[in-house]
Simulated assay, not measured.
Amino acid sequence: MSELYSDPADWYATLPTAFVSACMLLTDAEDRVLLVKPNYRPGWNFPGGIVEEGEAPHDGAMREVAEELGVSVKAGELLVVHWIPAEGDRPRALINFMFDGGVLDDPARIRPQVEELDEVAFLPWETAAPLLPAHIAPRLAAGRLARGNQRPVYLPGGLPGTGG
């Protein structure tokens, strides 16, 4: 190997890394958004979670929805890519992918994972927004906008339109 080039393993070890999560935007026939209330952290969230090693984000979103809600939902179009810088106890940036889960036509099929969830609810968009933690809340409006415009939204730093 030339002295100009690093060993690939050494080079990759110098690159920044990020945590990856994926979620789904699901609504019901009344256009209410589905949120879940985890029992292991404050606030509500979208169904989803951390993407496993070697797992594609859309597969992670489908797996997490199946685990959390007991329903099989196909990940539709990518709605939001949300980058959040490292902060507090989280030593790396977080990249979240939100996919369109569509409309759940039979909400009675939902079987919440009681080991992780205290509550699952379809809520009006305006009611859902204040229940989400500040770093997650921008995904709600961005997901709705992306779904309506049929075009993904990029959220750098979590605040739409701020660039950071």
Rank of each mutant, 00 (worst) to 15 (best):
S2I: 03
E3H: 13
L4V: 09
D10L: 13
A13E: 08
L15Y: 09
P16I: 02
T17N: 03
V20H: 13
S21K: 01
S21L: 00
S21C: 01
S21M: 01
C23W: 00
C23L: 05
M24V: 03
M24C: 05
L25W: 07
L26T: 03
A29R: 14
D31V: 00
D31G: 01
D31A: 12
V33G: 01
L35K: 01
L35S: 04
V36I: 15
K37H: 14
N39H: 04
P42L: 12
G43I: 02
W44C: 04
P47V: 04
G48I: 05
G49N: 09
G49E: 11
E53P: 01
P57I: 03
P57D: 04
H58G: 00
D59E: 15
A61T: 04
M62Y: 00
M62D: 00
R63W: 07
E67L: 13
V71E: 02
A75S: 11
A75Y: 03
G76I: 08
E77M: 12
L79Y: 08
V81Y: 01
I84D: 13
I84Y: 12
P85Q: 11
R90F: 10
P91K: 07
A93P: 08
L94G: 04
F97W: 12
M98C: 11
M98A: 13
M98H: 08
D100Y: 09
G102K: 10
G102F: 08
D106V: 10
P107D: 08
A108F: 02
R109F: 01
V114N: 02
V114K: 14
V114M: 08
E116S: 10
E119P: 00
T127L: 12
A128K: 09
L131A: 06
I136N: 15
I136W: 05
A137E: 11
P138W: 02
P138D: 02
A142P: 04
G143W: 09
L145V: 05
R147K: 15
N149C: 12
R151A: 12
V153Q: 14
Y154C: 03
P156F: 11
P156M: 04
G157L: 07
P160F: 08
T162Y: 09
T162H: 10
